[in-house]
Deep mutational scan, measured.
Amino acid sequence: MATDAALRRLLRLHRTEIAVAVDSAFPLLHALADHDVVPEDKFQETLHLKEKEGCPQAFHALLSWLLTQDSTAILDFWRVLFKDYNLERYGRLQPILDSFPKDVDLSQPRKGRKPPAVPKALVPPPRLPTKRKASEEARAAAPAALTPRGTASPGSQLKAKPPKKPESSAEQQRLPLGNGIQTMSASVQRAVAMSSGDVPGARGAVEGILIQQVFESGGSKKCIQVGGEFYTPSKFEDSGSGKNKARSSSGPKPLVRAKGAQGAAPGGGEARLGQQGSVPAPLALPSDPQLHQKNEDECAVCRDGGELICCDGCPRAFHLACLSPPLREIPSGTWRCSSCLQATVQEVQPRAEEPRPQEPPVETPLPPGLRSAGEEVRGPPGEPLAGMDTTLVYKHLPAPPSAAPLPGLDSSALHPLLCVGPEGQQNLAPGARCGVCGDGTDVLRCTHCAAAFHWRCHFPAGTSRPGTGLRCRSCSGDVTPAPVEGVLAPSPARLAPGPAKDDTASHEPALH
């Protein structure tokens, strides 16, 4: 009773807030009518008042009428009001819900409408889902798969039609296919003929059939049928067999079959498995989609049935006599038709004709302190090069084509190399640097090759510096006499390219 009084008091307290929050009759008014909170006449009256005075006034009048009803109607109103779709449509209802007392429970059932309790003993237990329907569909599909699609060729003596089998029958139906081979029951999904010589313990000319048996419980189990008994694959494991010639990621696949039913060829011909030897223990289905393919039931050349050999690369099948050149017997292992072999060759040939990528240039590290003349020119003028003790990398590039010797140069053309002071002394051009340390401070000019250098860098042994005729380390061993002091540049003949010694390969005349 306390809860009923509290709900009535809360409705009177929030009546105006609810009326202002509800700006549309749908969905709240319609939901109240659906849950029998508002009768039909009051529903029509509220809609009429909404058209006349507006939605807030109409709902305020409806809530005032609701306060005169019993506690069950008020409880049902609060339940409908706080439904998710009403809270989404009328956003101003959320503060009312947040301020609702926590001790007021809106989930209690309506009085007088409590459903009768059902004894637990009368409640049926839930049924577990079964796979009976899938099993029945598999039974119905198996006879259809064994139905012949056409008439065999005159040369083929193997013609068999499976008798119709009602689904209610649980007995196995067997077809006489000759040579002791028996087909599987209607619940078998796949059958492959297997030679009895590969099964340990088999006697006589009995041949087993590799099947997948579907049981009534819905589970499946792969086994071997020899005669009327089934054997699990673990009985046929043979770890010492060295003649297993397995197909790549293979499961067994029928390579020879008669049109209309699988079996042995007439005249004692023995149908073979995809792999010879003992049956392997793992009978998992292969991951290669080509091995799941269903080959055609007629020859791809003459479009006739009979004894066919199936290609492992495509769905086509052929007569042995229709092949070019014809085959006398079934080859062992994987067999592919000429079209598949030709496609494989065409895929391999473009790969062989692809040009080989060019090898990157060989990189040879230079000892610290040495650099090529090109690196000396590329440096920024007026700045010493940083990191001189790091190992430089010199790339061996292809030799350029031989060019004509340089033409003779006048001494005026070499004027930018040297600057003559007032006393006739050779001065260095701006930006000249030593080729060893890279520093341009207090550098000297070689009178023979006009290269800038430090005496301490080229002659670290402490050799005394002569007063005139300074030469760098590369030119100090040259027998050519030094030019007379005061000459602007060496003779043009000295600039012609010539053979250089091994220790002077990195010091070429550089223009500054």
Rank of each mutant, 00 (worst) to 15 (best):
K165R: 08
L97Q: 00
A121P: 09
S24Y: 04
W65K: 05
L28M: 02
G201V: 09
A31D: 08
W65T: 10
R174P: 06
I96V: 12
G242C: 11
A140H: 14
G269I: 11
E51I: 00
P126A: 05
P176S: 14
F82H: 02
K245R: 04
E237G: 11
L177I: 07
L67E: 00
L93Y: 00
H60I: 03
K114W: 14
T232H: 06
Q213A: 04
P233D: 06
S153A: 08
Q57S: 03
Q212W: 01
V214F: 10
E237F: 00
V20K: 00
A264Q: 05
S187T: 12
R12Y: 01
Q157N: 08
G263C: 06
A73S: 02
A265T: 10
G228N: 15
E17Y: 00
A202H: 10
L47K: 00
G227F: 01
T68G: 08
I96Q: 00
D4T: 00
R113F: 12
A21E: 06
N244Y: 13
P125W: 14
F26Y: 00
F215D: 08
V199P: 06
L128T: 15
V256M: 09
T46F: 00
F26G: 00
S169E: 03
Q57K: 12
K120D: 06
I211Y: 10
V118K: 02
D36R: 05
T147M: 13
P154R: 05
A61F: 03
V80I: 15
K102V: 08
I74H: 05
A160Y: 11
D105Q: 00
D36S: 03
Q182G: 04
K222H: 06
D238T: 07
T183L: 06
F215W: 08
R110G: 14
D103P: 01
T151E: 12
S249G: 13
S153P: 15
A205H: 15
E137S: 05
D103W: 07
L122Y: 15
A261L: 07
L146A: 04
L67C: 00
V80S: 01
T183A: 06
R149K: 06
I224L: 06
A202G: 07
K50M: 04
F215V: 03
E237D: 10
Q189L: 03
P109Y: 06
E270L: 14
S195Q: 06
L49H: 00
K120T: 15
A246E: 05
A19M: 15
Q173C: 15
L158V: 07
A193D: 10
S249R: 01
L81D: 04
A61V: 03
G227E: 03
L7R: 02
W78N: 00
Q108C: 05
S168P: 01
Q262D: 12
R174L: 04
N86H: 00
I181D: 03
S185Y: 03
S248W: 10
S249F: 06
T147I: 12
V256K: 02
G91D: 00
K243S: 10
R8C: 02
R149L: 13
R9D: 05
L273R: 06
R203Q: 12
T72P: 05
S220R: 11
A58C: 01
A186F: 01
K164F: 14
Q44W: 03
P101L: 03
R272N: 14
S250D: 04
D238A: 12
K102D: 07
G91L: 03
A121H: 02
P154Q: 01
K222L: 02
S153Q: 05
S168L: 07
L255Q: 10
D105A: 15
P129D: 02
A6I: 04
S217W: 02
R92D: 02
G219V: 12
F82K: 00
Q69S: 01
E171D: 10
K52V: 14
R113A: 09
V206G: 05
